[in-house]
Design a protein around this nucleic acid. Structure first.
Length: 447
DNA sequence: TCTGGGGTCCTAGGACCC
DNA sequence: TCTGGGGTCCTAGGACCC
């Protein structure tokens, strides 16, 4: 725990709704709800005027309409939100170089890395927070923010929550336990509905009561990692640093349909479009990924994922789309599907084309495919086999046809062997073709 | 007119390797 | 030939956050 309160947390009040009220004066002072407007939409943000009627984030929009029929219901204008967010984050970076945005409307700032915040007594911190809030309001055209300051991310976040709306709260060092103790265990980040229910069943509802539980008991109740984390957080111990840049670990796109869909061809086309969007976003970020995941939510909300890990990273829309389609073909859609999604993980910040050009542009690929790749699928393991030289074929480690994925099994003497197999179909056809066959690069080898 | 979209982290089991 | 422990990778699911 830090000896000084050097972590600041800023949270914009009812952000999306506030931007709408700022840009449309007729909405000021009135209930505004931003969220999905379709039959299956949910509330993203409710203005404070709408909250009076019990409208909350994550509530179904239909229920919000029932509670507050006279509110303005808006679908959201993310370009405007992004622009406002950028202004706020820039202001925070004037305060300290170490700013960690958590979302468009929220960020942590490490004041220990600040030139401005040298004086760390509570009154001085209060003044800094008020100055930031005033600047945010003037630069964004009137948006209000709540600011909390404490000795850790946990305490700063708790403080901004206590400051809401439109306020400041500093939790001085040494007072953490007093502030935290009487609060609901739900106030601790990481304690959601499921964890709160488990705690309730052993008679624990407040932070003080969490603190009274032996660490070992918390671990056996919640798992090793979560249990240990909760035991520490309940005591105000939170060593998590403020981190300015975090690398993305996955990229995904998903969509809930207005009505359940059953036609595999329609669903396949949707998966195709999603795969393309994932590829675009990867390419725009200069990323590629190895694991393609298909997410399917059935009519009854049963949700499943299916994934395939490729032998090497790609941002090729054709490969992503074919893999997603192949995964979808394993799913029974006859009962009705309400959502599908396509995602990519196992990201690398280089793309396979770099290998072709022979010159990695940004970084040396630290986890580049082994020159003699061993390819793993769920149920089948293939390794480059056969006598004679073997050669890595960039971009062609996985190819597809109607049999599912096919793996480059081995190559040599200018020839490449491709074996088609999936977990479901088992070993399939084998083809041998010239190493420079364009179908290899294109991933369109047929069995 | 039940339950969004984009993420992160954790757990657990099986396969495989040494 | 049998047994086994530790580490890593992969898949799937769950909880959580904003």
């Amino acid at each position: 725990m830090r000896r000084h309160a050097t972590v600041l947390h800023l949270d914009l009040d009812a952000f999306f709704a506030a931007v709408e009220q700022r840009d449309k004066p007729s909405l000021r002072g009135k209930p505004v709800v931003v969220g999905g407007l379709g039959p299956r939409g949910v509330v993203s943000t409710a203005s404070y005027e709408a909250r009076v009627y019990g409208v909350r984030s994550a509530m179904r929009t239909a229920e919000a309409r029932a509670r507050c029929p006279h509110a303005a219901y808006l679908g959201g204008r993310f370009d405007a939100y992004r622009a406002a967010s950028r202004i706020v984050m820039d202001r925070l970076r004037e305060l300290s170089a170490l700013v960690e945005p958590m979302s468009l409307d929220e960020a942590f700032v490490d004041l220990a890395a600040s030139d401005e915040a040298r004086d760390l007594d509570p009154d001085a911190l209060h003044a800094i927070a008020e100055q930031v809030r005033a600047d945010v309001a003037s630069r964004t055209g009137g948006l209000t923010a709540s600011v909390g300051i404490g000795t850790s991310k946990l305490m700063a976040k708790i403080a901004s929550e206590l400051a809401k709306p439109d306020g400041v709260r500093v939790i001085p060092p040494g007072t953490e336990a007093d502030v935290l103790g009487p609060m609901s265990a739900r106030a601790i980040p990481g304690v959601g509905p499921a964890t709160a229910e488990r705690l309730r069943r052993i008679g624990v509802t407040t932070v003080d009561e969490v603190r009274a539980v032996a660490d070992d008991d918390l671990r056996s109740l919640l798992g090793r990692s979560s249990g240990a984390a909760l035991a520490a957080l309940a005591r105000g111990i939170d060593p998590r640093p403020v981190v300015a840049e975090r690398e993305a670990k996955s990229v995904s796109v998903e969509d809930t349909f207005e009505i359940d869909l059953t036609d595999p061809r329609v669903l396949g086309d949707i998966a195709e479009r999603m795969g393309r969007r994932v590829a675009e976003r990867l390419a725009r970020s200069g990323l590629s990924g190895r694991t393609v995941t298909l997410k399917v939510r059935h009519h009854d909300f049963e949700t499943h994922t299916r994934s395939t890990t490729l032998a090497g990273p790609t941002d090729d829309a054709r490969v992503i789309v074919r893999t997603a389609r192949s995964l979808l073909s394993e799913v029974d859609t006859s009962g009705g599907i309400r959502l599908i999604g396509v995602g990519m993980s196992g990201l690398a910040d280089w793309v396979q084309d770099d290998l072709f050009s022979g010159a990695p542009e940004k970084h040396e690929p630290v986890d580049a495919p082994d020159p003699d790749p061993t390819v793993t699928t769920a149920g089948a393991r293939a390794r480059p086999g056969g006598p004679g030289g073997r050669r890595w074929v960039p971009g062609a480690d996985v190819v597809h046809d109607e049999h599912g994925p096919g793996w480059v099994w081995g190559s040599g003497l200018g020839r490449v062997t491709v074996r088609f197999e999936t977990r479901l179909s088992g070993p399939g056809p084998v083809r041998t073709l010239d190493a420079d066959d364009p179908a290899l690069r294109a991933g369109t080898v047929e069995a």
